[in-house]
């Protein structure tokens, strides 16, 4: 518990944290507003309003990576590990903190996006509908899982810029490659396996059959990616010299 308290203090005394959280909360609805106001009709209203999650996740990745890599950049990590010698407790505290911050920021961002969608889309959008609620809650969870993925990768590679490059590359590249694969089976497989497209399947509220994967299964795929990254990061933190 004291490890978590320490992480909390470190996070709030670095100006970057507040800026990145503000980024999640403003950028997400901003893209949603642009998307919703440019939509004529049809399509998936929930997905349209929540399109900003694709942008907001970049700030989440930045936040997650900064929480871990920032300490390696300044050498602070040596002090941290001296104070809390159980290294996994440090990683656990960091992961929990990133989760908390992302869920808080993500809830505000997703709430604003849904409200904007309701105001701008001709057909409106009500959180009271089951699928819309699932899309909204799922989007918050999606952001939290992307944060955990960032924590894991950052613990593994340590350098902040490299970690951000890796995570954003993983998220953004697979859909681009998938769009070029002609074989429908392979394309489907790529979309099922890639963390972003699988995870965002949770936002679909119409025509679920055309999605590459079911909403909760998709989040499960992202969770698998995040756990793998966290495990690898934990192993690296435990075995490697922290310099």
């Amino acid at each position: 518990m004291s490890a978590l308290h320490a992480e909390w203090t470190k996070a709030w005394t670095v100006p970057g944290t507040a800026w990145l959280l503000a980024g999640v909360v403003t950028l997400t609805p901003l893209l949603g507003v642009l998307a919703a106001s440019s939509m004529a009709e049809g399509g998936d209203p929930a997905r349209t309003s929540l399109l900003g999650v694709t942008l907001g996740q970049a700030a989440v990745v930045g936040l997650a990576v900064a929480t871990v890599s920032g300490e390696y950049g300044t050498g602070m990590i040596r002090t941290t590990l001296t104070a809390v010698p159980r290294r996994l407790a440090v990683l656990r505290a960091k992961a929990f903190l990133v989760c908390m911050l992302t869920v808080a920021g993500g809830t505000a961002a997703v709430g604003a996006s849904v409200a904007a969608g309701d105001a701008l889309l001709p057909e409106g959008l009500s959180i009271a509908q089951g699928p819309v609620l699932r899309a909204a809650v799922g989007s918050v969870l999606y952001l939290a899982l992307v944060g955990l993925l960032g924590v894991g990768v950052a613990a593994l590679v340590r350098d902040a810029a490299t970690a951000v490059g890796l995570v954003l590359g993983l998220l953004f590249l697979t859909p681009i490659v998938a769009s070029l694969v002609s074989d429908p089976d392979w394309r489907e497989r790529l979309l099922e396996w890639s963390p972003m497209t699988a995870g965002l399947a949770v936002q679909a509220t119409v025509d679920l059959g055309s999605q590459p994967i079911g909403p909760w299964q998709g989040l499960g795929v992202l969770a698998a990616w995040a756990s793998a990254a966290l495990l690898a990061g934990a192993a690296a933190l435990r075995l490697r010299d922290a310099s």
Partner: peptide, 10 residues
């Protein structure tokens, strides 16, 4: 570094 990579990749 992290902020720069995020901004440019995005």
């Amino acid at each position: 570094g992290a902020l720069t990579v995020t901004a440019v990749v995005v």
